[in-house]
């Protein structure tokens, strides 16, 4: 069991003929993901390594019954690609593209409001259910099937955490990279809720960073609704105010969004926060061992 993505999920790639789209479509297929089609306007009727390419998402859905999409379309056109996937009834939309204008994403969020579709990203590594399927750019081999849910705002820091969990002899149910932008689809609360309801997830790792208040809202959800243990880490304790640390979302504005503030709120909610980024795996292992010995 897992959340959102399983081995049977039929996936298309929007932007399949671009450099990144092509590279990662192959990567996902090699991992075992069921890639059933691709979309590049104007290239309908051709194929990419045996994968049929369509002009529109609607057409690809009609022909392949795809329910998920991975978007690599360049930033100026990516918001429109998300809207196209939404209109075609795709239920899991994963936008990898980095650099989408904020005002475009505000409109996309508005369009998502009354739909059942889930958006992950943009500017994210994607989602993986180890041993089954991945939609995204994460290295599959560091993952291992298991019972730890991982949700994070970062890319390589998520890999670091996953690797630590795997090296503790544990595995992951599903790992989700939410992305580093200020306006995005899935947030901590949504992901935590899915993990809480997933029978095969035993504990959750949430990795946040400075900026915004997503982690604080996640913590409030944990406090009120979660029965499973949550281990946390927040990057950016040493980040100065007013400086954007790479991610558009990672900026401390005024007194809001500091790492210290987030850690305090999370600990108050009963989340076990690792102060060191090198001890996330160990902390999870302790929690799991503690539970089994009960």
């Amino acid at each position: 069991m897992s959340i959102l993505l399983s081995r049977d999920t039929k996936i298309i790639c929007q932007g399949i003929t671009g450099k990144n789209g092509a590279f990662h479509t192959k990567g996902c297929r090699d991992y075992g993901s069921k890639i059933v089609g691709g979309v590049t306007p104007g290239k309908g009727g051709t194929d990419f390594e045996g994968i049929p390419v369509f002009d529109t998402v609607k057409e690809s859905v009609k022909e392949t019954d795809a329910t998920a999409t991975m978007i690599f379309v360049p930033a100026p056109f990516a918001a429109d690609s998300i809207l196209e996937a939404l209109d075609a009834g795709i239920s899991l939309i994963v936008a990898i593209t980095e650099g989408i204008p904020t005002l475009d994403m505000i409109k996309v969020k508005r369009a998502l409001e009354n739909s059942k579709s889930v958006l992950i990203g943009p500017n994210c590594p994607g989602i993986i259910t180890p041993g089954e399927s991945k939609i995204g750019i994460m290295p599959g081999e560091i993952h291992r099937r298991g019972t730890i849910g991982v949700v994070s705002r970062s890319g390589t820091l998520t890999y670091e955490a996953v690797d630590q969990v795997t090296k503790q002899g544990l595995g992951q149910s599903t790992c989700i990279g939410l992305g580093g932008d200020p306006v995005k689809g899935l947030n901590f609360v949504d992901a935590l809720k899915l993990f809480e309801d997933d029978k095969n997830t035993e504990a959750v790792v949430m990795i946040g960073e400075i900026g915004g208040s997503d982690e604080q809202e996640g913590a409030a959800f944990v406090k009120a609704h979660m029965s499973k243990p949550v281990v946390g880490y927040i990057a950016g304790l040493t980040a100065p105010k007013g400086k954007r640390m790479g991610h558009a979302g990672a900026i401390i504005a005024g007194s809001e969004g500091t790492a210290q503030e987030k850690i305090e709120v999370m600990e108050d909610a009963g989340i076990i926060v690792s102060r060191s980024p090198a001890e996330i795996g160990e902390t999870v292992a302790k929690v799991i061992r503690g539970r089994t010995s009960l």
Partner: peptide
Amino acid sequence: VNGAGLAMATMDIIKLYGAEPANFLD
């Protein structure tokens, strides 16, 4: 460091071991 999150985490762990980072570089 590669990646913004990992870069911030690297700055933080330097501080944990008693020194200060000279920069953030992704």
